[in-house]
Design a protein around this nucleic acid. Structure first.
Lengths: 216, 216
DNA sequence: GTCGTTGGATACGCGAATGTATGCGATGCG
DNA sequence: CGCATCGCATACATTCGCGTATCCAACGAC
């Protein structure tokens, strides 16, 4: 319901149709990552997916629509992974904040292609009010998924979050900022360690030792 | 020396030439911010600058070259501003960390057009090894300028930085991450407050009360 | 199997952007 | 003041990408 494609005519989605649509979406990720969204063309996406432009225009009306659809699909998948990990961690008895952090960072891998696309999408959204709203909604969803997990892990370590919204935004900002750094120097393990370190610091800074908790 | 244009033939740079070159650079910022780098064309940049394509090809060989030149010029200017502010703060007697933070944040305004371009450039650099090196160098320069300033301000508050490189990278990451948030919701003052708050937290997290200092 | 429908390929015309080649006024130099 | 070079405009050929219209094959219902 988030995207606008629901407004089109209610075309019956057959299996065949769904497959080519998906292949186009997958190809789009690769092509956008390689060429950049602005320099990408319908031709290239189709070529990569193994179709011709006829298939494209039968499934999408513009590159923008494909881009948005792809981004929404991929980030929804990422969010689902996050929820799964969150549930899994929730059932465990003892989870240290460090373990929780590691688990989250594993689920949200700093994938090269995906982050390139995200960077493009961000730049694109800065120019497009409706895309801005999409991104804002996504950020809220991420926070809603992430915060309970973080709070649970912290609670087990005897800490309580002081500023929920502050922490939520901080986590997203830190993720975005450090992800770029990781991709800029992909072979430097130190960058990733610093990333983790920064997350730890931030989580600590936005929480305090809760009164009833005994230390260690 | 950072860019590669020095490899061209040593063309005498007359005043006239420098002017049109500069106007093209200025126009590029606007156009790239409005249309996105990928969607920008030589035509549009020239139109905006008040020239024709002849002028462009007389000064640059490609849009990529113009983009890089523009980015380097603007970020060099920003760095110069930062140094100026740093020097000015250095001469003052008492500067609280908060004041220093404010001063720095004012010098690095989250300018809409500029940050859109930065986002584009980042995305572009993620795809281009040589641009990556340029960005990495720039980040190092920012850190080299910023860290002394932060350390001085902290020292006056009786604090000492524990992990310089960690703090440097953290500051850049936080800036990038929060700048996006500020631009996504430009009218929301709360976002900017959270940004400042996060900076404070990070600076605190990467420093400790130094031994010889008396509190207040 | 037959027929209607659907999915995608092919063919076409068009506009836009590119890069180059050439022309011409402006500018600097003696 | 005249000449040579410079700087930008103009003209041109070409390529590229788009969107549509049409066609053919695969599929599904019965």
């Amino acid at each position: 319901m988030t995207s606008a494609e629901a407004a089109a005519r209610p075309r019956r989605v057959t299996r065949r149709r769904a497959q080519t649509r998906q292949r186009l979406l997958d190809a789009a990720l690769t092509v956008f990552a390689e060429e950049g969204f602005g320099r990408s063309t319908v031709d290239r996406v189709c070529e990569r997916a193994g179709y011709t432009r006829g298939a494209f225009y039968s499934n999408f009306t513009s590159l923008d629509e494909l881009f948005l659809a792809m981004w929404e699909q991929r980030s929804a998948a990422m969010l689902a992974d996050l929820r799964t990990a969150s549930d899994r961690l929730g059932t465990l008895e003892s989870v240290s904040p460090d373990e929780a952090l590691r688990a989250v960072l594993e689920v949200i891998p700093v994938d090269d292609a995906w982050y390139r696309v995200t960077a493009e999408f961000t730049a694109h959204a800065l120019r497009n009010p409706s895309l801005r709203r999409v991104m804002a909604a996504r950020e809220r969803a991420v926070q809603d998924t992430l915060l309970p997990l973080v709070e649970t892990a912290l609670a087990r370590a005897g800490r309580r979050v002081t500023d929920r919204t502050g922490l939520g935004h901080a986590l997203v900002a830190v993720h975005d900022g450090t992800a770029v750094q990781c991709l800029m120097e992909p072979d430097d393990a130190a960058v990733r360690r610093r990333r983790e370190e920064l997350f730890r610091h931030v989580v600590n800074a936005y929480s305090i030792q809760s009164e009833g908790a005994r230390h260690e």
